[in-house]
Design a protein around this nucleic acid. Structure first.
Length: 252
DNA sequence: GAGTATGTTATATG
DNA sequence: GCATATAACATACT
């Protein structure tokens, strides 16, 4: 979603100049080095792996993670979003701004994508991983399936909300120990996870555009289950809010 | 003021 | 060392 957007606005553009308004957003790099690196370089591709974005600059990559509240916005005017942290001025009089109120996101530099993935020990992307490898990796853990699904070291790209949706669609209880699910259940979860991610990207992450029967359209405790079977319940799994339907997603 | 939030990682625990 | 659980991070909002 964001990748497509950035690609549309920035592909083939050259970064004329960069400004770092808040250096604490930078990961392992000084403002001076970051600004110096990107100046005059062209954005040849925008790559996504899980929640991580990479701008291919020919001689290295700019890495961007949006955290929980980060956003990349292409602008022409001078009115910046309230929490702008970094500005990239492009050669077409547009600029790409990184806005992030809560500052959980980060921007940095990397030699190569595999290099970065290795350093951060990120698992395969949720949309790339084969059914076989998904099942193999997930069932290695005894933790609650929900915790495993959002663990970026196992599979990269599934966030808290999308994990709830995938588990709901696959009718798997979020607290079920990952290693005790049947192969069949895990295969169903693999399929549903990709369906959910693809559908969400197509809906531009706008929940109201999601199909009927999606949990995300009414994700709050006490609401009716979208399938009409029960009442949605809220619990904590691994410290994260988890919404599920006890009727559709029974614990075997 | 208290509680909560769509993420990651350092630290604690067994 | 390993697998797992939890705290901490910074800010906005109910």
């Amino acid at each position: 979603m964001v990748r497509r957007y950035v690609e549309g606005h920035c592909l083939g553009r050259t970064i004329v100049k960069a400004k770092v308004l808040d250096a604490s957003i930078l990961d392992q790099v000084s403002s001076r080095r970051f600004v110096g690196f990107v100046r005059g370089k062209r954005i040849n591709a925008v790559i996504r792996h899980g929640k991580q974005l990479f701008f291919d600059m020919s001689v290295g990559f700019v890495t961007v993670h949006l955290g929980m509240t980060g956003d990349l916005i292409a602008l022409e005017d001078e009115i910046l979003p309230r929490h702008t942290r970094v500005l990239l001025l492009l050669n077409d009089s547009e600029m790409l701004v990184y806005d992030d109120p809560r500052k959980f996101g980060s921007i940095g530099l990397a030699k190569s994508v595999p290099d970065f993935l290795l350093e951060h020990r990120l698992g395969p992307d949720a949309l790339d991983i084969s059914r076989k490898e998904f099942v193999e990796r997930v069932r290695r853990s005894r933790r609650a399936i929900k915790s495993v699904l959002i663990d970026q070291h196992v599979v990269a790209g599934v966030g808290n909300l999308y994990a709830d949706e995938s588990l709901f669609q696959a009718r798997v209880h979020p607290l079920a120990p990952a290693d005790q699910l049947s192969i069949h259940e895990l295969e169903r979860l693999w399929q549903k996870t990709r369906d959910v991610l693809k559908t969400s990207i197509d809906a531009s992450t706008d929940f109201s555009k999601l199909p009927d029967g999606y949990l995300l359209r009414s994700r709050s405790s006490g609401m009716r289950c979208p399938r009409g079977n029960g009442t949605l319940q809220s619990i904590k799994v691994g410290g994260r809010t988890t919404i599920f339907c006890p009727v559709c997603q029974p614990m075997r």
